[in-house]
Design a protein around this nucleic acid. Structure first.
Lengths: 123, 123
DNA sequence: CAATGACGTTTACAGATGTAGTCGAAACGA
DNA sequence: TCGTTTCGACTACATCTGTAAACGTCATTG
């Protein structure tokens, strides 16, 4: 099921595929961010775990596979946001937003931008 | 170090101690939420792992221990919120608000509340 | 056609996590 | 004082995660 959690390392792979797909395992490895310098076998392991979790699919291309995400980034982000909010804020989003707003040094420009967004939402 | 991550199960214990401390292991077990029906040994294991992670401390009371949180709930919440924002929104607060906005997970009341918060921050 | 390389699959292995049993010592009740 | 309960400490064990090596196979190239 796609209800399996995606681990941190796996998320790194997903981000690459969300940005561009389909890709071969080698392509994915080539696009790793600098702070994730994994060997090709590692990337392959992560890809096959993602296959098991039905988070990606692969299609044969000659004797290689082309991998593509099966789950939507938007859905994943929503799911994880909700998970955090459930765990830490009793399921309410507002406290999270308020908390972050308090923590974060928002520039006046940021604030105006958010206000604009909020005005749009209201209508 | 207190930089060790607190797992889900451990968080359940922390929440109990944040609500009321100090408590003995047995007390903690008695306060478990209904959906976490753990045996006493399990609770003790989790408590000792939290000790190792320096997330709680204990003080002898006769032959028992009284456990208290060492880290602040506020700090933990900040840390985890930041982690989410870093992982999923490139560390920026705005995209999170935008995301929530799109998902329509903020009520009109929520929005007004955020606006009030932002106005306060501007000054 | 043989050697080399590119792939996917299988196996590995340490550390974290969820969940709990066992054990020895101390305390308490009869 | 002797059995029973109660602790904490130690041990256990399956699963998940991070990271990767080994292996078998097909393709490519000399």
């Amino acid at each position: 099921m796609s209800s399996d959690r995606i681990s941190d390392a796996e998320l790194t792979i997903m981000e690459i595929l969300w940005e561009r797909a389909p890709l071969t395992a080698t392509d994915v490895a080539a696009r790793l961010p600098d702070d994730r310098d994994w060997s090709l076998p590692t990337v392959k392991t992560l890809l096959s775990r993602l296959l098991t979790k039905a988070a990606v699919e692969h299609r044969a291309d000659g004797r290689r596979f082309l991998y593509s995400p099966l789950i939507d980034r938007e859905d994943y982000v929503s799911h994880e946001s909700k998970r955090l909010v459930d765990r830490l804020f009793g399921g309410r989003f507002m406290p999270l937003v308020a908390h972050l707003a308090e923590q974060e040094q928002l520039s006046d420009a940021d604030i105006s931008e958010i206000e604009r967004l909020l005005r749009e939402m209201k209508s």
